[in-house]
Write a protein that binds this DNA or RNA. Structure first.
Length: 850
RNA sequence: GCCGGAGUGGCGGAAUGGCAGACGCGCGGGAUUCAAAAUCCCGUCCUGGCAACAGGGUGUGGGUUCAAGUCCCACCUCCGGUACCA
């Protein structure tokens, strides 16, 4: 230990042990719920949540403690402000790395996971976060995933009531009387919110699993960047699309960064338009298209079907069959990556068939092309090349006619996709785009040719993975084809032991390797096999914030009374990378639980903050290959957890991306040492002689009250960096005093405590207190004492500063004016002219206009 | 392409439309020391000047205003997200 520095490691260890031994941060439910509880039920509650980490073998990186420190400061601050604070932590522990390791080494993923959790818990504890570790959850614990499976059964056993726009138990589903037996069963299965589907999916051969749309980025897997191809497979899906509208509406209620809301808004991708029927010339078949621009119907010069569209086989003429078939096969084999790459050059084939434009009877050719997606809208479009960039490109390449039907306000080259005035549009000519849309939609509805329609980009959530290390589905496939859910009493369905963890290449998951587990006999004697897919990693994180409220409950996922007390999450801090994945999925789950009456509010996360990324010292993203990774353990050993916490907050605004700088850690470490020496004698280790029971002088009192005000206000608005600056100013001031008023120092220690809790506790104790300061009331400031007595004003002439004057804080406008005009420098700058106008901004400046 | 966010000293950053650069890092000088480390004090936006001081300055160009880093318009650069969604 250097001279002038306190013994960081000893003090931090001492207090971490103290908190643990005394259960300082145990969170009690209010006495009305738990009769044993010492918690005063009249206290307001505050739920501060961190996005729980994946326990990786790498352990914590410096990005984790950033959000965790911010939330810990808020949690500690709120406790001092008299809130009953829930501040938990847990482990999002299912996931690929542990399974990949198992495939390579044969180590059970549970073992690897446990080891990683233990290491990360150690690291997190070493930072002195005030979590209630009795509430830890681990998504891989059967006592936890029992309830994940339970929620899955809720999805399975529910349908969506369109009229009420909410989920209801499947028993309440109205079933057409005519149906019975197999048909009836099929009807019910088709309405479940969890359903099976044989659909083309994102298959990643390298990972041996399918991926959700959200996990595929630019045709490559989000994890690992492996190619992804489309392949039809049987999969479990969750009907998130039923909730599009409510997921959009809910965004209005929450206090989230606008950018995140917009990301979700765009991901859901609502578009309003019309569906229009085009008759196929010479046939009874009708092609239905979706368009957001029904006002351009007169400009539709051809149609395009997605290669997978069911009518392609029906309408293709004999002479086109071979070419069309070849194109379809090519498209189906293309990976998403290829499709994206080839996006620059449009391809397609005419089917030989023609359609009739419903507005003018024009005969227009029908093509197929992979620029039309089967999964959006109706899988078919009317092409209006004059007013759609993609159609323009296609029409230009294949020499298809282009007819202008919208006149732009100012002439433009090429395609015009904006709004304007209709031309070449029969009776509708002359209408504005907006008017046209309304009129033509009405007309289409009257004529029975179309209808207004809404489409969403969001697709149903592909909810199964061909992996070992995930929650097993509580589902049995009976021999006769019926899908039978386990009863709630049979949960949890635990993972079987298997000899090895490799997927079977064919897409058959590793669970199929365990025959004992796989084959079952149902209570009614039928034989069946268990579902061998497992749930995706997102499943466990969809509801963990609810389990924290009641982590040991064996009877329910959580008790209703506890949910009513603690929810919603008042503050949720985590990385922006979860903007559309975790945050959308968990909102969806929450809404199901809300519909079924298990939770009391439709939105789980009231306020959301994204911490920014921390870059390496070279300003680049931290990565092993660049060798610029900062290991928190090393920083803590060298400078201590308090310095680590303080530095992470001092670097800049929480949301910003900012580079690490080891010398900056030194800087805050010096500040803590200074604060220490303010109160402790370096030589003797006793309380410094300068610490005295004397009243603070005026300047000190004022600065103290300013500091209490500033730090409190900054914590409330998450401006941690400026709060720390203010504390530095206070310490710099106190250092100069020979007699340091003890009362002011005590208040300062309390203010410092949420940021640097270890050193604050130690100083608090040395100042003569026996109890932890964690529940000491946050010091109050007196608004009167915050005010300066005398203030310096800048005096400007024509906006340029010429002099500074000092006046009493309560000086009137006239007095200030007089003082300002009396200044020699001001007189000189005015050059004898008379002031035209004198602007006095109290406590700021004076501007003289001549 | 489109959608976000950001451009302020050598660096991280601070500034309800009101004194640009708080606080910290770094750097320069001094004190202390046999010396160093640590600590303390002074200085540190740029240009000119010994100095008092003068002039310039928040990516670029315009505008609004008594007053613009902050508001408006156009543009440039960087970072992040996204990709044929009709």
């Amino acid at each position: 230990m250097e001279k002038g520095a306190y013994d960081v490691n000893a003090i931090e260890k001492k207090w971490q042990e103290h908190w643990e031994a005394n259960k300082t941060f145990k969170t009690w439910d209010p006495a009305c719920i738990d009769p044993e509880s010492p918690c005063d039920g009249s206290k307001p509650k505050y739920y501060v949540l961190d996005m729980f980490p994946y326990p990786s073998g790498q352990g914590l990186h410096v990005g984790h403690p950033e959000g965790y420190t911010a939330s810990d400061i808020v949690a500690r601050y709120k406790r001092m402000k008299g809130f009953n604070v829930l501040h938990p932590i847990g482990w999002d522990a299912f996931g690929l790395p542990a399974e990949q390791y198992a495939i390579q080494t044969g180590t059970h993923p549970a073992q690897t996971t446990q080891r990683n959790i233990d290491n990360m818990r150690r690291q997190i504890k070493s930072l002195g976060f005030s979590y209630d570790y009795d509430r830890e959850v681990d998504t891989t614990d059967p006592n936890y995933y029992k309830w994940t499976q339970w929620i899955f059964l809720k999805f399975f056993n529910s349908y969506f009531d369109e009229a009420e726009q909410k989920a209801r138990p499947i028993d309440e589903l109205p079933i057409p009387e005519a149906l019975s037996g197999e048909e009836r069963r099929k009807y019910i299965d088709e309405h479940r919110l969890a359903y099976e589907s044989e659909a083309p999916v994102n298959w990643c051969p390298a990972l041996g699993t399918v991926l959700a749309n959200e996990e595929v980025v630019g045709g490559l897997s989000e994890r690992g960047g492996h190619p992804v191809i489309r392949k039809p497979m049987r999969q479990w899906m969750l009907r998130i699309t039923k909730y599009c509208e409510r997921l959009l509406e809910g965004l209005d209620e929450v206090d989230w960064p606008e950018s995140i809301k917009k990301l979700q808004f765009d991901w859901i991708g609502k578009s309003i338009g019309a569906e229009v029927d085009f008759k196929v010339d010479g046939r009874e078949d009708v092609i239905r298209v979706f368009t957001t621009r029904p006002d351009t119907l007169f400009g539709a010069t051809y149609m395009v079907l997605a290669p997978e569209h069911p009518l392609v086989d029906v309408i293709t003429t004999a002479d086109r069959k071979a070419a069309v078939q070849q194109y379809r096969e090519g498209a189906s084999r293309k990976s998403d990556l290829d499709r994206t790459d080839l996006a620059k050059e449009k391809t397609g084939e005419p089917t030989g068939a023609y359609a009739l434009n419903p507005v003018n009877g024009e005969r227009i050719p029908i093509w197929i092309s992979d620029y039309v997606l089967i999964s959006y809208g109706t899988g078919a479009i009317m092409a209006v090349p004059a007013h759609d960039e993609r159609d323009w490109e296609f029409a230009t390449k294949f020499n298809l006619p282009i007819i202008q039907v919208v006149a732009p306000r100012e002439p433009v080259e090429g395609c015009f996709a904006g709004e304007g005035v209709a031309v070449n549009s029969g009776d509708f000519t002359g209408l504005s785009t907006a008017e046209f849309k309304l009129k033509i939609t009405d007309w289409l509805e009257e004529e029975g040719l179309g209808t207004r329609a809404v489409n969403y980009k969001l697709r149903d959530w592909l909810f199964s993975r061909q992996r070992y290390w995930g929650e097993p589905f509580p589902i049995i496939h009976a021999q006769d084809g019926e899908v039978v859910p386990l009863s709630e009493g049979d949960l949890p369905l635990t993972l079987p032991e298997v000899e090895d963890y490799k997927p079977m290449g064919t897409g058959e998951p590793p669970l199929a390797k365990s025959a004992d587990w796989l084959n079952v006999t149902l209570p009614d004697g039928r034989k069946g096999t268990r579902e061998t897919n497992t749930m995706p990693q997102w499943a466990g994180s969809c509801w963990y914030y609810l389990r924290y409220m009641d982590p040991d409950n064996a009877e329910a996922a959580f008790a209703k009374a506890k949910e009513e007390y603690w929810m919603p999450v008042d503050l949720y801090i985590g990385g922006a990378e979860h903007a559309v994945l975790h945050l959308l999925y968990s909102r969806f789950w929450h809404k199901l639980l809300y519909d079924l009456g298990y939770v009391s509010m439709p939105e789980p996360f009231k306020k959301l903050i994204n911490q920014g990324m921390i870059l390496g010292e070279d300003g680049q993203k931290m990565s092993k290959s660049r060798g610029n990774v900062i290991n928190p353990d090393n920083v803590i050993t060298q400078y201590g957890a308090d310095s680590m916490r303080l530095y992470e907050m001092f670097m800049g605004p929480l949301e910003a991306t900012k580079p690490w700088n080891m010398q900056g850690v030194e800087g805050v470490h010096r500040f803590l040492n200074k604060a220490w020496r303010l109160m402790v004698d370096e030589e003797t280790g006793e309380l410094a002689a300068a610490v005295q029971d004397v009243p603070a002088d005026e300047a000190t009192t004022r600065l103290l009250h300013q500091t209490i005000k500033k730090v409190g206000g900054d914590v409330e608005s998450f401006g941690f960096n400026t709060a720390i600056s203010q504390m530095m100013i206070f310490v710099n001031h106190m250092m100069r005093l020979d007699a340091r008023p003890k009362d002011a120092l005590e208040k300062f220690v309390l203010v410092l405590a949420p940021f640097a809790p270890h050193v604050a506790e130690e100083l608090w104790q040395r100042l003569g207190h026996d109890e932890t300061l964690a529940y000491e009331p946050w010091p109050q400031y007196d608004p009167e004492l915050v005010k300066e007595k005398e203030i310096e004003l800048a005096v400007q002439v024509l906006g340029k500063i010429k002099d500074k004057i000092v006046v009493a804080a309560d000086a009137g406008e006239d007095e200030i004016k007089e003082t300002a005009l009396a200044s020699e420098k001001v007189q000189a700058a005015m050059g004898g002219k008379t002031p035209k106008k004198v602007i006095v901004i109290k406590s700021r400046l004076v501007n003289i206009v001549v």
